[in-house]
Structures are given as structure tokens and as C-alpha cells.
């Protein structure tokens, strides 16, 4: 699909460099960074991520000591606090296997944000090494494992929200490739696909008016496309958009990319609703 044509007339320039990433080993051992949102709210997304990875022959480890990637404080400007959490994450995820993250934003924190805030720190090499192992899920499937189409069946129409950190890293394209390849699934374009949904981390609570205004525009485009599902690689965007829609009294159905991939494997059976 030529992304320059039609309503999705935006071909993202990759603003984050992913060229340094470390490919997975032959044994396909991986570590899962579940993200604090899945840890607290969206357990099924983390479960689906494990199931998808295991389907691909991966052995998934879950380092028990994991907490958060450090992004909230990084985003809030409290870099000293963020670095403490990043150092903790680097210790917990010791080793050399790929770290798979079911979030474009948390993955980008590891390979882009953390190195930025560690530029002048003595342990910047450790943090850079952590970043080289970090992959957003779709990016890992398509570019790490070379899987370009998804088996199983899932019948319905999907509007895919290109979360900004997956757009910036180019992994949104990987997610769209996988979704469009599912038997029965149709990815419908949404207007102004390059525009942010308005979540933005601490921005969502610091700028509630601007944030909800941005969200309302995104919802307008999503509703115009009349999809069965709104899908994204990031639960943060979906938590914001879904929460806005529900507050309005006009809820929309949202699902994480990993859940759709897992549901397709199970043959159109929507599990753990």
C-alpha cells in the first residue's frame, strides 16, 4: 500500500535509529518486560504477548523484579528519579537475550529515552546495551524473527492507531503488515493517522483540556471508519481513547495488537473479554 495515497497520506520518517539492534539468538530465548500498565490493568495483554511469542517458538522469561521502564519520570522531567528506575531495570534484565515489550512507547524508552538521559552518566554503556536488546512486539516479530504474515483467522475490520513511539520507530508499519495479513481481517484507514491521540504520559493529567481535545479528534476519525475494533501497539493510547469514549457514554471496542494476534491463532475466538 502506498502510504502517501488516500486518507492515510502520511509516510512517517523514522526519527529514532534502530539500526544498532541486536538480533535474537537461535534458541529464541527472550525476556518479557510486561510494562507497568499491563502489570496493573491489562494482564490479558501480557498473557497474549507470552502466547504469541511461544507460538513463534520463543522461550519467554519474566524477570520477577521488574517494575517500570522509567518513562513516567523521564517524561515528567525528573530525570534523576527516572535514572534510578532505569538502573533498576538494567539490573533486573541482566543478560543478553532480546527484551520484548508490548508497547512502542516503553520500548522506545529503553532504546531512545534512557540513552538520552544517561548521556553524561558513567554507566551509559550499560544503558545503551539494555537499549540494543529492546524490541516492541510487532517490530520483533517482523524485523527480529522475519515473520511477515500471521496465521489463523480473525474476521472483522480493524482501525489501527499508530501510537507515536511506534510510528517514530517504524514499528507501526510492522504491526499494520501483520494485522493486514490475517485471514478475514481488514485494516481500514483512519484520517490524520499521523496525529497523536493526546495521551502523552504526564501530559494527559497536566493538560486535561488539550489532551481530551486531541483525543476527541482521534475518536472522530476512528468512528468515521466504523471499525469493529480499534487496535494499537500501546495500551496507554487505548486507555486514554477508550476512557474518553466511555466517559462520553459512547464506548468503543479497543484491543491490543498482541490480543488480536493471539485471538487469530485461536481461530476467531475472542478470549478473556
Amino acid at each position: 500500500m502506498d502510504q502517501r495515497v488516500g486518507v492515510n497520506a502520511f509516510h512517517p520518517f523514522p526519527i529514532m535509529d534502530l539500526s544498532h539492534r541486536q538480533p535474537p539468538g537461535a534458541d529464541r530465548r527472550v525476556q518479557l518486560l510486561a510494562t507497568c500498565l499491563c502489570d496493573a490493568f491489562y494482564d490479558d495483554v501480557a498473557i497474549a504477548t507470552v502466547e504469541v511469542l511461544e507460538h513463534l517458538g520463543c522461550t519467554v522469561e519474566f524477570p520477577e523484579g521488574q517494575t517500570c521502564c522509567g518513562q513516567p519520570a523521564f517524561n515528567a522531567g525528573d530525570w534523576a528519579a527516572s535514572r534510578r528506575v532505569v538502573r533498576h531495570t538494567a539490573r533486573v534484565f541482566a543478560g543478553d537475550v532480546p527484551i520484548i515489550v508490548p508497547s512502542g512507547s516503553c520500548a522506545a524508552m529503553l532504546f531512545h529515552g534512557a540513552p538520552l538521559e544517561f548521556e553524561d552518566e558513567p554507566d551509559r554503556a550499560d544503558v545503551a546495551a539494555l537499549g540494543r536488546r529492546a524490541w516492541e512486539l510487532a517490530d520483533f516479530i517482523v524485523h527480529g524473527l522475519g515473520v511477515k504474515s500471521w496465521p489463523g483467522r480473525w474476521a472483522g475490520t480493524i482501525a489501527f492507531h499508530r501510537s507515536c513511539h511506534s510510528r517514530g520507530s517504524g514499528s507501526a508499519a510492522a504491526a499494520e503488515l501483520l494485522l493486514a495479513s490475517i485471514d478475514g481481517a481488514k485494516v481500514v484507514p483512519i484520517g490524520e493517522a499521523e496525529q497523536c491521540c493526546g495521551f502523552g504520559g504526564t501530559f494527559a493529567v497536566g493538560f486535561p483540556n488539550v489532551s481530551s481535545g486531541m483525543g476527541a479528534l482521534k475518536l472522530e476519525h476512528v468512528r468515521a471508519a466504523q471499525p469493529d475494533l480499534l487496535v494499537s501497539a500501546d495500551m496507554s493510547c487505548l486507555m486514554h481513547l477508550g476512557g474518553l469514549a466511555e466517559k462520553e457514554g459512547k464506548p468503543i471496542k479497543t484491543r491490543h495488537l498482541a490480543q488480536v494476534l493471539r485471538d487469530a491463532l485461536k481461530g476467531n475466538q475472542v478470549v478473556r473479554e
Partner: peptide, 8 residues
Amino acid sequence: KASSLCGL
């Protein structure tokens, strides 16, 4: 702070 850091 007046940015969602979307990178556009």
C-alpha cells in the same frame, strides 16, 4: 511541558 512528545 506543552507537548505530548509525539515527535511529529
